[in-house]
């Protein structure tokens, strides 16, 4: 049964209930061929359960999952042709790196020469071909991560599934691996779904960002579309917005600190925006500028300012330009 869309993976109203609790609640999702989609959200939002349902480790209590246009809803994991990279990497401890990478090909009955060639190819892609004789426990965390990636890629999966792939690495290695991941995905052209709680990771890697809140899609789209225009307070908070206030005529809005102007209390208000009186409660020097914490009629507002004449306790006028203010659905 084909679903008639070009998406490599498509979820139609997929839900997963554990007893009375809906871990995933009516999720629709389309993952175009060759794209990298990031499932993003805080822990418990249902992103991992969604990924595990795509892999076949969990089964939806409602809805359908299509992979390569075929209904895969009830298929066992081994029938789906997916390449999963686990958070724990899950490398087989009793096998060498080469045998780990070749495992999927071996159980598919691929000839030994072909297995060796493709395992080598996959290890080369992740830059580890010289370690093929090692055991997993002899590798660093970053190397294990690459082996797990090579093992998943070696079977030429319809879709590569990455479950928090960078969360077990230290900060420096994480940034490095993030760039690696982007390169590998681009070079291999494999359709990829990435689960992460790190919005930076998603912003940097994803063609499509799907933000989940309590099992539902809060917002989906290209990072460049979502980041400047979060749909609601949850998404805005998750993306790091901290200023929330209600403006007359605009309702609940958010605005980035660098777009809030801090002006002298006296003087005329500029056009093209709304101004509100406020008091500076704290100034944190950051080098290029200072982060100014303001009390604006009861709302706490952060502004980035470089004016050296601002002092804690001063009364000022805050200005919110119309074209910078992001209205939120409440």
């Amino acid at each position: 049964m084909r679903d008639g869309s070009d998406a490599v993976v498509r979820l139609a109203k997929v839900s997963r209930h554990f007893g009375d609790v809906a871990a995933v609640d009516g999720v629709d999702l389309e993952v175009p061929a060759g794209s990298l989609t990031a499932l993003l959200g805080p822990s418990g939002c249902g992103k991992t359960t969604t990924l595990r349902m795509i892999a076949g480790y969990e089964h939806p209590t409602a809805g359908q999952i299509f992979i390569d246009g075929r209904d895969a809803t009830g298929l066992a994991p081994e029938k789906r042709n997916i390449g999963m990279v686990f958070q724990s990497y899950a490398l087989f401890p009793h096998l060498t790196v080469a045998k780990n990478v070749g495992f999927g090909l071996k159980v598919r009955g691929v000839a030994r020469e072909e297995i060796r060639r493709r395992a080598h190819e996959a290890l080369e892609l992740v830059g580890l071909s010289e370690l093929s004789g090692r055991r997993p426990r002899e590798l660093s965390g970053g190397q294990q991560q690459r082996v797990a990636l090579a093992r998943a890629i070696a079977i030429r999966p319809s879709v590569l599934l990455l479950d928090e792939p960078l969360s077990n690495l230290d900060a420096r290695l994480r940034v490095q691996m993030r760039a690696e991941l982007a390169r590998i995905q681009r070079e291999s052209g494999i359709t990829t779904i990435l689960v992460t709680h790190d919005q930076e990771e998603a912003l940097q890697l994803a063609d499509q960002m799907v933000i989940l809140d309590s099992g539902r899609v809060a917002q989906a789209g290209h990072p460049r579309k979502i980041f400047p225009a979060p749909a609601n307070r949850f998404v805005a908070t998750f993306l790091g917005y901290e200023n929330f206030l209600t403006l007359p005529g605009r309702g609940l809005v958010t605005i980035r600190p660098e777009h809030v102007a801090v002006l002298p209390e006296s003087g005329t208000a500029p056009d093209g925006g709304q101004s509100r009186p406020g008091t500076i409660s704290r100034i944190t020097y950051r080098g290029t500028d200072s982060l100014v914490t303001l009390d604006v009629e009861g709302d706490t507002i952060l502004a980035a300012a470089s004016d050296p004449d601002l002092h804690e306790g001063s009364r000022v006028r805050t200005f919110f330009p119309d074209d910078r203010v992001v209205p939120l659905a409440s």
């Binding site: 480790y57 042709n81 999963m84 495992f103 159980v107």
Partner: peptide
């Protein structure tokens, strides 16, 4: 996850 990994790689 070891067993899940094996299943995902195509092993019954």
């Amino acid at each position: 996850a070891l067993e899940e990994a094996a299943r995902g790689l195509g092993a019954g």
